[in-house]
């Protein structure tokens, strides 16, 4: 595991800047796990990343479990928040999604079912430092 970037964000604009710095890093076939509490900025990050890729309609997949966005590159946007057991994910074809080499896959609350995630992946951790500041760490697991 190595740390690629550590970033302090004080507002949405700065989180957007962080998303911009990830554009050159994430490639089709990559899996990106996002961890952090409710309201930590996970969905906002994915939304910002998608907007920079000219995908304007990204929103929370908490209910849908996975949203698919068709841009120049395909993006799968998962959320494990309301999943109760890992069979559910396997049943809905989770491996078909993450083995799609033409798509970048983001997984909110990926840490809830870490055993299903491939070893080789990016992890973004969102931590609330105080009432306004967030610490965002980008890690690479191999």
């Amino acid at each position: 595991m190595k740390t690629i970037e550590e970033f302090i964000s004080e507002n949405e604009e700065q989180t957007r800047d962080f998303a911009a710095s990830c554009i050159s890093i994430f490639k089709p076939g990559d899996i990106v796990e996002l961890s952090g509490n409710l309201g930590a900025g996970k969905t906002f990050f994915v939304k910002s990343f998608c907007e920079l890729k000219n995908i304007p309609n990204a929103n929370s997949p908490s209910f849908a479990i996975v949203n698919e966005y068709a841009g120049k590159e395909k993006i799968y946007h998962f959320d494990f928040y309301r999943i109760k057991k890992n069979e559910e994910l396997i049943e809905i074809g989770f491996y078909d999604y993450i083995n799609d080499e033409s798509a970048i896959t983001f997984i909110e609350w990926g840490d809830l079912f870490e055993e299903l995630l491939p070893l080789s992946r990016y992890v973004i951790k969102f931590g609330l430092l105080d009432n306004t500041k967030r610490k965002i760490s980008l890690l690479k697991y191999e």
């Binding site: 409710l38 309201g39 969905t43 906002f44 939304k47 929103n59 929370s60 908490s62 209910f63 309301r82």
Partner: peptide, 15 residues
């Protein structure tokens, strides 16, 4: 543009 109304209720209840 982000969360649905029902989702907001569910997450608020959790908090």
């Amino acid at each position: 543009i982000d969360d649905a109304a029902g989702e907001a209720f569910d997450k608020a209840a959790k908090m």
